[in-house]
Design a protein around this nucleic acid. Structure first.
Lengths: 159, 159
DNA sequence: TTCTAATTGAAAAACATTTTCATTTGGCTT
DNA sequence: AAGCCAAATGAAAATGTTTTTCAATTAGAA
């Protein structure tokens, strides 16, 4: 299930948060982005629509939307640092291109059996899980192949 | 397979990195910690053994050890920020207590079928994956239960 | 022992995030 | 429609983390 803008604004209101112009703009940007955004990237886009919105407000709104479950943090695993921001959706996982950062969502993970076993063996009460696949998307893979052919493999010691 | 200290030092040498006293100490601390550490926590422990080692060197050593595959970053998911540092081991995943931060490793994940399907459907070349279960360990769960009984459930609006 | 590139610590810089605070404002109440 | 006030805002400062810079030191090959 994917939320729409109106539902999010309603939820804000219902939970006692005010529906301000700034929040409208921020939510609008999130809803119209089909990619993950860092707080800074989100702010940048918000500024195009309303140059007066401060980065702090973006952070505060992110916090609220996370709390309400409309957006979720994510991690680009591998080398890069923890990212956040995503258009709303239900329980899902990510398939991430470690070159260009493209993210594809998928929902089925079929980890119930494993979860159950781990919970028993370790006496854990398991609430949730995070599953991310890292790799290369088709386009980036093509580029890599071209580079391999073009340049010699000058295997430089990684420093 | 779990590495020992000597193997790590050898690997450093083999890859053209110098085996300095600082690196010895840092690796020693990692090898003797049975928990995950942030760079700051690692530095703190290193200081006890050698007060002259700088935080910068800790960061630089972390980078090298990550590159050589001896340690891996991890994410505590949920609220907290990206963590790092782990005693060496092979491909594994984490079961994390979101209350006390305890981490249990497990190695079997059985995601090959899913991985293969995702790769095909999305034209991805998948390199790796990250799987983390979040929950409450036995001890923290007990504490929670006691609290529920002790305090009334004063359901305060989460702000 | 000598030599040199790699390494180091300290300080500064670069970022990311949070806190503080005076001012403004959404939206309930009249 | 007007008043009110807690919530929200922007700017600046504070905090924290990670990276860069640089002069001095040092591991380890020759």
């Amino acid at each position: 299930m994917v939320y729409n803008e109106k539902q999010m604004l309603n939820a804000l209101h219902k939970h006692g948060y005010k529906v301000t112009p700034q929040r409208r703009v921020i939510i609008g940007v999130i809803m119209n982005s089909h990619e993950h955004l860092t707080p800074a990237a989100l702010h940048e886009r918000v500024l195009r629509l309303d140059p007066s919105v401060g980065l702090v407000t973006v952070y505060r709104t992110i916090e609220i939307l996370t709390e309400l479950g409309f957006i979720c943090e994510m991690h680009a695993g591998g080398g890069s640092r923890s990212y956040l921001m995503r258009r709303p959706s239900e329980h899902h996982h990510h398939l991430i291109c470690s070159d260009c950062g493209k993210v594809i969502d998928f929902t089925d993970c079929d980890l119930d059996k494993l979860e159950h076993r781990l919970a028993q063996e370790n006496k854990f009460k398991i609430d949730s899980h995070l599953l991310e696949f890292l790799g290369q998307c088709r386009e980036c893979n093509k580029k890599t192949l071209i580079n391999v052919v073009t340049n010699q493999d000058k295997s430089v010691p990684s420093r």
